[in-house]
Protein backbone atom coordinates (compact mmCIF):
# COMPACT_ATOMS: atom_id res chain seq x y z
CA UNK A 1 0.00 0.00 0.00
CA UNK A 2 1.44 3.33 -0.99
CA UNK A 3 1.75 6.24 1.40
CA UNK A 4 -0.94 8.18 -0.39
CA UNK A 5 -3.35 5.28 0.00
CA UNK A 6 -2.45 4.92 3.65
CA UNK A 7 -3.15 8.56 4.38
CA UNK A 8 -6.19 9.08 2.21
CA UNK A 9 -7.59 5.69 3.21
CA UNK A 10 -8.41 4.80 -0.39
CA UNK A 11 -7.33 1.45 -1.71
CA UNK A 12 -6.33 0.98 -5.30
CA UNK A 13 -9.32 0.04 -7.49
CA UNK A 14 -9.88 -3.65 -8.13
CA UNK A 15 -7.78 -4.78 -5.16
CA UNK A 16 -8.23 -8.48 -4.49
CA UNK A 17 -9.03 -9.70 -7.99
CA UNK A 18 -5.94 -11.12 -9.70
CA UNK A 19 -5.61 -12.21 -13.31
CA UNK A 20 -3.70 -15.29 -14.41
CA UNK A 21 -0.61 -13.36 -15.39
CA UNK A 22 -0.38 -11.69 -11.96
CA UNK A 23 -0.92 -15.02 -10.24
CA UNK A 24 1.94 -16.56 -12.24
CA UNK A 25 4.17 -13.64 -11.34
CA UNK A 26 3.32 -14.03 -7.65
CA UNK A 27 3.97 -17.76 -7.54
CA UNK A 28 7.27 -17.27 -9.37
CA UNK A 29 8.30 -14.66 -6.81
CA UNK A 30 7.37 -17.05 -3.99
CA UNK A 31 9.43 -19.86 -5.54
CA UNK A 32 12.41 -17.55 -5.85
CA UNK A 33 12.18 -16.51 -2.21
CA UNK A 34 12.37 -20.15 -1.10
CA UNK A 35 15.01 -21.13 -3.64
CA UNK A 36 17.25 -18.27 -2.51
CA UNK A 37 17.86 -20.15 0.74
CA UNK A 38 17.24 -23.78 -0.16
CA UNK A 39 19.44 -24.02 -3.27
CA UNK A 40 22.71 -22.84 -1.67
CA UNK A 41 22.17 -25.20 1.29
CA UNK A 42 21.47 -28.16 -1.03
CA UNK A 43 24.52 -27.20 -3.06
CA UNK A 44 26.70 -27.14 0.09
CA UNK A 45 25.46 -30.53 1.30
CA UNK A 46 25.99 -32.06 -2.15
CA UNK A 47 29.54 -30.70 -2.31
CA UNK A 48 30.37 -32.02 1.17
CA UNK A 49 28.97 -35.42 0.27
CA UNK A 50 30.93 -35.56 -3.01
CA UNK A 51 34.10 -34.44 -1.22
CA UNK A 52 33.63 -37.19 1.36
CA UNK A 53 33.00 -39.82 -1.34
CA UNK A 54 35.99 -38.79 -3.47
CA UNK A 55 38.26 -39.12 -0.44
CA UNK A 56 36.76 -42.51 0.49
CA UNK A 57 36.61 -44.00 -3.03
CA UNK A 58 40.18 -43.01 -3.89
CA UNK A 59 41.50 -43.79 -0.39
CA UNK A 60 43.28 -40.44 -0.31
CA UNK A 61 45.46 -40.18 2.81
CA UNK A 62 44.34 -37.49 5.26
CA UNK A 63 47.69 -35.65 5.12
CA UNK A 64 46.91 -34.90 1.47
CA UNK A 65 43.17 -34.36 1.55
CA UNK A 66 41.12 -35.03 4.70
CA UNK A 67 37.42 -35.67 4.34
CA UNK A 68 34.88 -33.19 5.71
CA UNK A 69 34.43 -35.37 8.81
CA UNK A 70 38.09 -34.95 9.79
CA UNK A 71 37.88 -31.20 9.19
CA UNK A 72 34.86 -31.08 11.49
CA UNK A 73 36.75 -33.08 14.14
CA UNK A 74 39.61 -30.63 13.90
CA UNK A 75 37.24 -27.68 14.14
CA UNK A 76 35.64 -29.03 17.31
CA UNK A 77 38.77 -30.65 18.76
CA UNK A 78 41.00 -27.59 18.30
CA UNK A 79 38.17 -25.16 19.01
CA UNK A 80 39.81 -23.41 21.96
CA UNK A 81 43.00 -22.73 20.01
CA UNK A 82 41.17 -21.74 16.81
CA UNK A 83 38.79 -19.47 18.69
CA UNK A 84 41.69 -17.60 20.32
CA UNK A 85 43.31 -17.26 16.89
CA UNK A 86 40.04 -16.01 15.41
CA UNK A 87 39.71 -13.40 18.15
CA UNK A 88 43.18 -12.11 17.38
CA UNK A 89 42.54 -11.90 13.64
CA UNK A 90 39.14 -10.33 14.23
CA UNK A 91 40.66 -7.73 16.55
CA UNK A 92 43.25 -6.64 13.98
CA UNK A 93 40.63 -6.66 11.22
CA UNK A 94 38.12 -4.56 13.12
CA UNK A 95 40.71 -2.08 14.39
CA UNK A 96 42.05 -1.71 10.85
CA UNK A 97 38.53 -1.20 9.55
CA UNK A 98 37.83 1.51 12.12
CA UNK A 99 41.11 3.22 11.26
CA UNK A 100 40.35 2.87 7.55
CA UNK A 101 36.98 4.53 8.06
CA UNK A 102 38.46 7.37 10.14
CA UNK A 103 41.44 7.80 7.81
CA UNK A 104 39.56 7.34 4.54
CA UNK A 105 36.56 9.48 5.38
CA UNK A 106 38.71 12.03 7.21
CA UNK A 107 41.06 12.41 4.25
CA UNK A 108 38.09 12.63 1.88
CA UNK A 109 36.64 15.50 3.92
CA UNK A 110 40.02 17.24 4.09
CA UNK A 111 40.53 16.84 0.34
CA UNK A 112 37.05 18.16 -0.24
CA UNK A 113 37.74 21.25 1.84
CA UNK A 114 41.12 21.99 0.25
CA UNK A 115 41.65 21.33 -3.44
CA UNK A 116 45.38 22.05 -3.06
CA UNK A 117 45.75 19.37 -0.41
CA UNK A 118 43.91 16.91 -2.63
CA UNK A 119 46.12 17.68 -5.62
CA UNK A 120 49.21 17.23 -3.42
CA UNK A 121 48.29 13.97 -1.71
CA UNK A 122 45.81 12.05 -3.85
CA UNK A 123 48.41 10.60 -6.26
CA UNK A 124 50.29 9.11 -3.32
CA UNK A 125 47.13 7.57 -1.93
CA UNK A 126 46.70 5.90 -5.31
CA UNK A 127 50.30 4.67 -5.35
CA UNK A 128 49.91 3.27 -1.85
CA UNK A 129 46.78 1.47 -3.01
CA UNK A 130 48.12 -0.04 -6.25
CA UNK A 131 51.35 -1.35 -4.67
CA UNK A 132 50.55 -4.89 -3.47
CA UNK A 133 50.52 -4.97 0.32
CA UNK A 134 52.43 -8.29 0.32
CA UNK A 135 55.40 -6.44 -1.10
CA UNK A 136 55.23 -3.56 1.37
CA UNK A 137 54.62 -5.68 4.46
CA UNK A 138 58.18 -7.02 4.97
CA UNK A 139 59.47 -3.42 4.95
CA UNK A 140 56.85 -2.37 7.45
CA UNK A 141 57.94 -5.05 9.90
CA UNK A 142 61.53 -3.87 9.64
CA UNK A 143 60.68 -0.31 10.67
CA UNK A 144 57.68 -0.79 12.93
CA UNK A 145 58.68 -2.38 16.17
CA UNK A 146 55.29 -3.35 17.55
CA UNK A 147 53.81 -6.37 15.78
CA UNK A 148 50.28 -5.17 16.41
CA UNK A 149 51.01 -1.73 15.01
CA UNK A 150 52.68 -3.27 11.94
CA UNK A 151 49.74 -5.57 11.29
CA UNK A 152 47.31 -2.69 11.71
CA UNK A 153 49.30 -0.60 9.28
CA UNK A 154 49.26 -3.38 6.66
CA UNK A 155 45.53 -3.89 6.95
CA UNK A 156 44.90 -0.15 6.97
CA UNK A 157 46.87 0.42 3.76
CA UNK A 158 44.64 -2.04 1.90
CA UNK A 159 41.36 -0.94 3.44
CA UNK A 160 41.43 2.86 3.56
CA UNK A 161 41.45 3.56 -0.16
CA UNK A 162 37.95 2.39 -1.11
CA UNK A 163 36.56 4.51 1.75
CA UNK A 164 38.60 7.50 0.59
CA UNK A 165 37.72 7.26 -3.09
CA UNK A 166 34.03 6.52 -2.66
CA UNK A 167 33.56 9.19 0.02
CA UNK A 168 35.36 11.72 -2.18
CA UNK A 169 33.04 10.83 -5.04
CA UNK A 170 30.05 11.16 -2.74
CA UNK A 171 31.07 14.56 -1.36
CA UNK A 172 31.35 15.82 -4.93
CA UNK A 173 28.05 14.33 -6.06
CA UNK A 174 25.82 16.89 -4.39
CA UNK A 175 22.78 17.92 -6.44
CA UNK A 176 23.81 21.23 -7.99
CA UNK A 177 20.43 22.85 -7.36
CA UNK A 178 20.67 21.98 -3.66
CA UNK A 179 24.16 23.48 -3.65
CA UNK A 180 22.71 26.68 -5.15
CA UNK A 181 19.91 26.65 -2.61
CA UNK A 182 22.41 26.46 0.26
CA UNK A 183 24.30 29.40 -1.25
CA UNK A 184 21.13 31.46 -1.54
CA UNK A 185 20.34 30.77 2.10
CA UNK A 186 23.85 31.85 3.05
CA UNK A 187 24.94 28.49 4.48
CA UNK A 188 28.40 28.40 6.03
CA UNK A 189 31.03 25.92 4.87
CA UNK A 190 30.32 23.68 7.87
CA UNK A 191 26.57 23.83 7.41
CA UNK A 192 27.07 22.83 3.78
CA UNK A 193 29.32 19.95 4.82
CA UNK A 194 27.12 18.74 7.65
CA UNK A 195 23.61 19.19 6.24
CA UNK A 196 24.31 18.65 2.54
CA UNK A 197 27.56 16.97 1.58
CA UNK A 198 27.83 14.31 4.28
CA UNK A 199 24.26 13.03 3.81
CA UNK A 200 24.77 13.05 0.02
CA UNK A 201 27.98 11.08 0.46
CA UNK A 202 26.52 8.51 2.87
CA UNK A 203 25.41 5.93 0.25
CA UNK A 204 28.79 6.17 -1.49
CA UNK A 205 30.64 5.90 1.83
CA UNK A 206 28.67 2.79 2.78
CA UNK A 207 29.52 1.21 -0.58
CA UNK A 208 33.21 1.86 0.09
CA UNK A 209 32.84 0.54 3.63
CA UNK A 210 31.54 -2.82 2.38
CA UNK A 211 34.62 -3.23 0.20
CA UNK A 212 36.92 -2.02 3.00
CA UNK A 213 35.47 -4.63 5.39
CA UNK A 214 36.60 -7.46 3.13
CA UNK A 215 39.92 -5.81 2.38
CA UNK A 216 40.82 -5.22 6.03
CA UNK A 217 40.44 -8.98 6.62
CA UNK A 218 42.73 -9.65 3.65
CA UNK A 219 45.18 -7.09 5.01
CA UNK A 220 45.15 -8.69 8.46
CA UNK A 221 45.72 -12.17 7.00
CA UNK A 222 48.61 -11.00 4.82
CA UNK A 223 50.13 -9.19 7.80
CA UNK A 224 49.96 -12.33 9.93
CA UNK A 225 51.63 -14.42 7.26
CA UNK A 226 54.45 -11.90 6.95
CA UNK A 227 54.80 -11.10 10.64
CA UNK A 228 54.86 -14.68 11.88
CA UNK A 229 53.72 -15.68 15.34
CA UNK A 230 56.30 -14.18 17.65
CA UNK A 231 55.20 -11.84 20.38
CA UNK A 232 51.48 -11.42 19.89
CA UNK A 233 50.29 -15.03 19.59
CA UNK A 234 48.96 -16.57 16.44
CA UNK A 235 45.95 -15.52 14.39
CA UNK A 236 44.05 -17.77 12.01
CA UNK A 237 46.42 -17.18 9.09
CA UNK A 238 49.43 -17.98 11.23
CA UNK A 239 47.64 -21.15 12.41
CA UNK A 240 47.10 -22.16 8.79
CA UNK A 241 50.77 -21.67 8.03
CA UNK A 242 51.85 -23.55 11.13
CA UNK A 243 49.43 -26.44 10.45
CA UNK A 244 50.77 -26.58 6.89
CA UNK A 245 54.31 -27.14 8.16
CA UNK A 246 52.99 -30.05 10.24
CA UNK A 247 50.93 -31.51 7.38
CA UNK A 248 47.85 -31.06 9.56
CA UNK A 249 45.66 -30.40 6.52
CA UNK A 250 42.40 -30.84 8.43
CA UNK A 251 43.28 -27.96 10.73
CA UNK A 252 44.22 -25.85 7.72
CA UNK A 253 40.75 -26.38 6.32
CA UNK A 254 39.15 -25.69 9.72
CA UNK A 255 41.00 -22.38 10.13
CA UNK A 256 40.27 -21.48 6.53
CA UNK A 257 36.55 -22.03 7.02
CA UNK A 258 36.66 -19.75 10.06
CA UNK A 259 38.32 -16.99 8.02
CA UNK A 260 35.65 -17.42 5.34
CA UNK A 261 32.92 -17.28 7.99
CA UNK A 262 34.46 -14.13 9.40
CA UNK A 263 34.47 -12.50 5.96
CA UNK A 264 30.83 -13.42 5.41
CA UNK A 265 29.92 -12.08 8.84
CA UNK A 266 31.65 -8.75 8.20
CA UNK A 267 29.94 -8.39 4.83
CA UNK A 268 26.53 -9.25 6.28
CA UNK A 269 26.96 -6.86 9.21
CA UNK A 270 28.00 -3.98 6.96
CA UNK A 271 25.16 -4.72 4.53
CA UNK A 272 22.72 -4.61 7.43
CA UNK A 273 24.17 -1.32 8.65
CA UNK A 274 23.89 0.11 5.16
CA UNK A 275 20.30 -1.04 4.88
CA UNK A 276 19.35 0.45 8.25
CA UNK A 277 20.87 3.81 7.40
CA UNK A 278 19.44 4.08 3.89
CA UNK A 279 16.14 2.22 3.97
CA UNK A 280 14.03 5.31 4.60
CA UNK A 281 15.21 7.36 1.66
CA UNK A 282 17.71 5.87 -0.73
CA UNK A 283 16.81 4.28 -4.06
CA UNK A 284 19.09 1.30 -3.44
CA UNK A 285 17.09 0.28 -0.37
CA UNK A 286 13.66 0.55 -1.98
CA UNK A 287 11.27 -2.24 -2.71
CA UNK A 288 9.20 -1.40 -5.74
CA UNK A 289 5.58 -1.22 -4.72
CA UNK A 290 4.07 -1.88 -8.11
Amino acid sequence: MSLVERITGQAAPGAGAIDADEARRQSRARMERIARWVLPVVMLLATLWLWDRIVAWNEIPHYILPGPGRVWDSLTGDWAMLWDAALLTARITLMALVLAVLGGAGLAILFNQSKMLELSLYPYAVILQVTPVVSIAPLIFIYVESKTAGMLLCAWIVAFFPVLSSTTLGLNSVDHNLRDLFRIYGASRWQKLWFLQLPSALPYFLGGLKIAGGLSLIGAVVAELVAGTGGVGAGLAARIQEAGYRLNIARMFAALSMIAAMGVFIFAALSLLSHLLLRKWHESALKRES
Partner: peptide, 23 residues
Protein backbone atom coordinates in the same frame (compact mmCIF):
# COMPACT_ATOMS: atom_id res chain seq x y z
CA UNK B 1 13.80 25.42 -9.17
CA UNK B 2 12.62 23.40 -12.13
CA UNK B 3 13.16 20.23 -10.11
CA UNK B 4 11.73 20.00 -6.59
CA UNK B 5 15.32 19.94 -5.24
CA UNK B 6 14.44 18.31 -1.93
CA UNK B 7 16.93 16.58 0.33
CA UNK B 8 15.99 12.90 -0.10
CA UNK B 9 17.32 11.96 3.35
CA UNK B 10 15.11 14.46 5.17
CA UNK B 11 11.39 14.32 5.88
CA UNK B 12 8.99 16.81 4.32
CA UNK B 13 8.93 18.90 7.51
CA UNK B 14 12.73 18.88 7.77
CA UNK B 15 13.01 20.01 4.16
CA UNK B 16 10.72 22.96 4.84
CA UNK B 17 12.63 23.71 8.05
CA UNK B 18 15.90 24.08 6.07
CA UNK B 19 15.89 27.88 5.45
CA UNK B 20 15.37 28.46 9.18
CA UNK B 21 17.81 25.78 10.18
CA UNK B 22 20.59 27.40 8.15
CA UNK B 23 19.91 30.58 10.14
Amino acid sequence: FQEPTLMPWATVADNVWLPFRLR
